[in-house]
Amino acid sequence: LKGVVVAGGVLAGAVAVASFFLRNKRR
């Protein structure tokens, strides 16, 4: 169960970083 929580956190972080980079590329 702990691994699932960690994986979810990593996935959420990756999505946040990806969206951040996409926003920067638009400018």
Score class of each variant (00 low, 15 high):
residue 1 L to R: 11
residue 2 K to S: 09
residue 2 K to R: 11
residue 2 K to Y: 06
residue 2 K to P: 13
residue 2 K to V: 09
residue 3 G to Y: 14
residue 3 G to W: 13
residue 3 G to N: 12
residue 3 G to A: 09
residue 4 V to N: 07
residue 4 V to S: 10
residue 4 V to H: 06
residue 4 V to L: 12
residue 4 V to M: 03
residue 5 V to R: 08
residue 5 V to A: 12
residue 5 V to N: 03
residue 5 V to F: 09
residue 5 V to P: 01
residue 5 V to T: 09
residue 5 V to H: 02
residue 5 V to E: 02
residue 6 V to N: 04
residue 6 V to R: 11
residue 6 V to A: 12
residue 7 A to Y: 15
residue 7 A to S: 10
residue 7 A to P: 03
residue 7 A to Q: 10
residue 8 G to A: 08
residue 8 G to R: 03
residue 8 G to Y: 12
residue 8 G to E: 05
residue 8 G to H: 14
residue 9 G to M: 09
residue 9 G to Y: 03
residue 9 G to K: 09
residue 10 V to H: 01
residue 10 V to Q: 02
residue 10 V to A: 14
residue 11 L to M: 13
residue 11 L to Q: 00
residue 11 L to T: 03
residue 12 A to T: 11
residue 12 A to P: 02
residue 12 A to Y: 13
residue 13 G to E: 04
residue 13 G to Y: 02
residue 13 G to F: 13
residue 13 G to R: 09
residue 13 G to H: 07
residue 14 A to T: 08
residue 14 A to L: 11
residue 14 A to M: 15
residue 14 A to D: 00
residue 14 A to R: 05
residue 15 V to K: 04
residue 15 V to S: 02
residue 15 V to W: 10
residue 15 V to G: 02
residue 15 V to I: 15
residue 16 A to F: 05
residue 16 A to R: 07
residue 17 V to Q: 01
residue 17 V to K: 01
residue 17 V to F: 10
residue 18 A to F: 05
residue 18 A to S: 03
residue 18 A to L: 11
residue 19 S to W: 14
residue 19 S to N: 15
residue 21 F to Y: 06
residue 21 F to T: 02
residue 21 F to R: 04
residue 21 F to C: 05
residue 21 F to Q: 02
residue 22 L to K: 03
residue 22 L to Y: 05
residue 22 L to W: 04
residue 22 L to C: 06
residue 23 R to G: 05
residue 23 R to E: 02
residue 23 R to F: 08
residue 24 N to T: 08
residue 24 N to E: 04
residue 24 N to F: 07
residue 25 K to F: 15
residue 25 K to T: 12
residue 25 K to G: 14
residue 25 K to N: 11
residue 25 K to P: 07
residue 25 K to V: 13
residue 25 K to R: 12
residue 26 R to C: 15
residue 26 R to N: 15
residue 26 R to G: 14
residue 27 R to D: 05
residue 27 R to K: 14
residue 27 R to T: 15
residue 27 R to F: 00
